[in-house]
Design a protein around this nucleic acid. Structure first.
Lengths: 260, 260
DNA sequence: ATCAAAGTTCAAGTAATTCGAATAGACTTA
DNA sequence: TAAGTCTATTCGAATTACTTGAACTTTGAT
């Protein structure tokens, strides 16, 4: 028996889990036909079909020529959810400015249930292309911005997050050891910023700084990232952190007066 | 017995409809508590609770201090769905340029199942603030871009859309009469662009132009809108249409070579 | 410290999902 | 044109699991 981590519940509504499983599979496969879904999910054709028709009727999936795709009703919910985040409104323009000034890729990241969520990104003139997209969820310990968020949490909370999701490696440089992570978080608290040297993508470096609320707890973080042959040395350790902290500080002040 | 319109199905998965109903209600109410949802949905407290916990576990809702909110997992699906639209990739930068040049609000709109979906917007220096948000769905006949899309459809298809959703009015100027709509669509086909004079928002004018595929069917449309005291006369009827058509034409060409 | 409101659990009944097989439709190939 | 394949759709029967209501716990306010 595994530990009852997070919101794991005893009696979930399985039919809803099934429907979301179908949605997720369509997304992962970049579209799918009824037989494809039936095979992979190991369910009766008629059952999957009924789910698809229901989801289609709800505009969560659409049927095209080459099978079913994710419908744009999800965009309505997604954009709504992001718009609810006050840090998105305060941060959006600043993130774009930062990308213009530095020329690098800049991300605004938040956390939900111990995982990272990529809220918004801006692309500078020299930005690299990475697989990350807005809306993506991931592991906090693999990101500069994520580590900056973790550094604001209590040791107990970090431990519970590590218990729930583990510390899986994405590259050879990813921190997978708890003690190393705690050391790292301590040094982040000292410096005020977090660094990432190829821990999520090889040869990609980044700086991350937290956006904290009045209790000192991070509600989000911003990162600036670029290729390691350019983003290194004092540019990485001094110049970018200074700019970043200026931006996050500004956002924090605006947020403290914008709270409803 | 009502006409079997659209994808209306005989045996939907009610449990999924219930779950989406809960999601929708949380969204409409900007967050809700368990008793609030229970009252409004007229369901047992334990049932709603179980759904909420399931949705929370799936990251579709999150529980905050003041009740449940829409979770950011929806953003992952939504952004994914938008990224799947090739017209979004081709159109995004052009829409931003157009907003910079004109200073007005520019929208990229597509259609799904006979309804409009606001895919992307860019805001110019003098843009007005409207209630529309990315992801929003609406009626095609109420929008300049929407009418431009309808104008590319067969009369039969437009009729079937009107049958399914009706032609509800949003303002006093909204076209609610079928014959008037067909006349309007004919004149749009002649001019190549559609106009909107306060038909969705009072005192807001707009021009819309379709982005058509190789079959001459609109897959999307772009609109430029602004207050009627500024956006009028030949600026509205000549200058903006010319700029718009330049942009949509460019996108169409790019799309025709980008098709997978 | 007491009370009210919100959240959570459980067993039992019922309602709805799931299944499988059979049918209809669409598209390709001979 | 016709056969064949792949996909989609429908239906009745059976079992699964959703819904309910009441009881209990927790949380927060006066």
């Amino acid at each position: 028996m595994t530990t009852d981590s997070g919101t794991g519940q005893r009696r979930p509504v399985k039919t809803v889990e099934t429907a979301v499983g179908i949605l997720e599979l369509i997304k992962v496969r970049d579209g799918a036909t009824l037989p494809e879904l039936t095979d992979e999910l190991d369910m009766a054709k008629s059952t999957v079909h009924r789910h698809l028709k229901t989801l289609e009727n709800l505009d969560f999936v659409v049927k095209g020529d080459d099978g079913y795709r994710i419908g744009l009703r999800t965009l309505d919910f997604g954009i709504y959810a992001r718009d609810q985040q006050s840090v998105f409104h305060e941060g959006k323009d600043r993130v774009e400015e930062l990308a213009d000034e530095t020329g690098e890729k800049v991300w605004l990241i938040t956390h939900e249930r111990g995982r990272s969520v990529h809220l918004f990104s801006a692309t500078g003139a020299r930005s690299v292309r990475t697989p990350a997209r807005e809306g993506n969820q991931g592991y906090l310990h693999q990101l500069a911005a994520g580590k900056a968020i973790l550094a604001s949490f209590s040791k107990e909370r970090v431990r519970s997050i590590a218990d729930e999701y583990g510390l899986p490696a994405e590259t050879e440089a990813t921190i997978t050891d708890r003690d190393k992570l705690f050391d790292e978080l301590a040094s982040i608290r000292e410096r005020g910023v977090a660094f990432n040297r190829g821990e999520s993508i090889p040869k990609l470096n980044a700086v991350g700084a937290p956006i904290t609320d009045s209790n000192g707890e991070a509600i989000a973080a911003i990162s600036v990232s670029g290729p390691s042959n350019r983003v290194k040395g004092t540019y990485l350790t001094e110049e970018l952190p200074e700019r970043l902290l200026g931006v996050t500080n500004e956002i924090e002040i605006n947020l403290s007066y914008a709270e409803s």
